[in-house]
Write a protein that binds this DNA or RNA. Structure first.
Length: 423
RNA sequence: GGAGAAAUGGCAGAGUGGUCGAAUGCACUAGUCUUGAAAACUAGCGAGGGUCACACCUCCGGGGGUUCGAAUCCCUCUUUCUCCGCCA
């Protein structure tokens, strides 16, 4: 959620910036500013009325003490009338506040100036590409066939138990996945991220805090009996740990990492591109989150990109980094880098990480602030990224490391898997 | 799941209808003292809206109500604690 003050002071820049998303902000911005003015004037009217009422109430108290009951009763009647008036003002005010909030909820974050205009993924910029894509024979199998051949992932079994998109990992498949989780967490911890284990269900307030609600209600699994949501990403519980917090400047940076399963309804996805591990309803992910001083968040974003680059390099996977264009950048993000690994058998890029700087957009909803040296309070900046999402990494590892006799394990992972080969 | 108790500022903890946005202590910040630090002393010290700045308004777990007036009374939800039951 953008701040009204920010919109007011940077009206033209906001409108121009949002054009890069093909979001026409002109009218929403006008409505926001209009509602804000209205809010202030109604608030002011109400304040004056309440001040008067308070004064009179105090007088009544005094009159009673002096035993002037009759005069007190006269005053009482007067105040009662005023109260009715202010009741109307109160409901008017809360309506305005609600309208204003709804308007703000529907305005996406303003892309950073470096972000190019564009409508879809076709307009994303490739900022780095590791070119040495391995030559695979035509016999190279897509990961779902590799998985079936060595009996390490069972999609049908998951379908039986739950439904499509809930695979069962078996034997070395399960162990490989666990090894990857540990490896990722260790890498993150080494880089200064504090590890957390967090709830996998969150309440409504948390959903609003990170912006999944109200916009993406349909994408989360919802336990209606308890009104809890299954998390679509660890970002939700991890970031919400800091909801309604006022940090000290010296608390920065706060760096957190967590492994969680992620649950996504993915309503409307189907077809060849969702085969195998490419798109699941439940998958594992290790997430990194940073809370940063506003002066440091871009630096931090670069550091996160470097960090993930390091991991993919160690895994020996060909990858590229994209800076998403305006239209493809998530609603809450000001700039997002996507990491994609090359899937040798499918001959396509698979997204394995998405790293974003949200600036104050999330912090505003979260009421996540810090007290500056001068004693003033400001919103913090938040960032997050996947480090990394498991299924597609696993898919690429299975495809790229396959041989005629089995699947090799990258050296860096051998201490974690404690086996060298899948056959 | 049943019975009872409670929820107040960063923490602890007063306050049960009328200058209470809230005593006090700790913590914190600045200053005095000190070679420096500690101690002691002095001052400041919740959040949001609003204003050039004041004024002023809102907030004592959330929501609703009673009253001229509520942290204080009533309803409701949530959470925590104690006891009982159940259980990985």
């Amino acid at each position: 959620m953008l701040q009204v003050q920010y919109i007011k002071e940077n009206k033209e820049a906001v409108i121009a910036g949002l054009k890069k998303r093909f979001f026409d902000a002109e009218e929403p911005v006008e409505r926001v500013l209009g509602l804000d003015d209205k809010r202030k004037s109604v608030q002011n009217k109400l304040d004056l009325s309440l001040a008067e009422q308070k004064k009179m109430a105090a007088e009544i108290g005094g009159l009673f003490k002096q035993g002037k009951g009759a005069e007190a009763n006269d005053l009482k009647e007067k105040v009662s009338q005023m109260k009715n008036e202010s009741k109307e003002l109160t409901s008017e005010l809360s309506q305005i506040a609600e309208d204003l909030q709804n308007e703000l909820y529907n305005i996406p974050n303003v892309p950073h100036e470096k972000v190019v205009a564009g409508k879809s993924e076709d307009d994303n910029e490739v900022v780095l590409e590791v070119v040495d894509i391995p030559e695979m024979s035509d016999k190279a199998l897509p990961h779902w066939e590799v998985a079936a051949k060595y009996d390490i992932i069972d999609f049908e079994l998951g379908t039986k138990i739950t439904g499509a998109g809930f695979p069962v990992y078996k034997g070395k498949g399960a162990r490989y996945q666990r090894a990857l989780i540990n490896y990722f967490l260790d890498k993150n911890t080494e880089a200064g991220y504090n590890e957390f284990q967090v709830p996998h269900l969150v309440n409504e307030a948390s959903g609003y805090g990170t912006g999944q609600l109200p916009d993406k209600e349909g994408q989360m699994y919802h336990s209606t009996v308890d009104n809890l949501y299954l998390i679509p990403t660890a970002e939700v519980p991890v970031t919400n740990m800091y909801r309604d917090k006022i940090l000290k400047e010296e608390d920065f940076p706060i760096k957190a990492t967590a492994y969680t399963p992620c649950f996504r309804r993915e309503a409307g996805s189907y077809g060849a591109h969702v085969r195998g591990l490419n798109r699941l309803h439940q998958f594992d992910k290790v997430e990194i989150v940073q809370l940063q001083h506003p002066d440091k968040s871009w630096e931090a974003l670069d550091a996160m990109v470097e960090h993930i680059k390091g991991i993919l390099t160690e895994l020996g996977l060909p990858f590229r980094i994209l800076r998403l264009c305006g239209g493809d950048t998530g609603f809450t993000s000001a700039m997002t880098y996507d990491f994609e690994v090359w899937s040798a058998a499918q001959k396509r890029w698979l997204e394995v990480s998405s790293v974003s700087n949200f600036l104050t957009f999330q912090a505003n909803r979260l009421k996540l602030r810090y007290t500056a040296k001068d004693g003033k309070r400001h919103l913090a900046h938040t960032l997050n990224g996947s480090s990394l999402a498991l299924p597609r990494v696993l898919a690429a590892l299975l495809e790229n490391y396959q041989t005629e006799n089995g699947v090799e394990i990258p050296d860096i992972l051998k201490p974690y898997t404690r086996f060298d080969f899948i056959d």
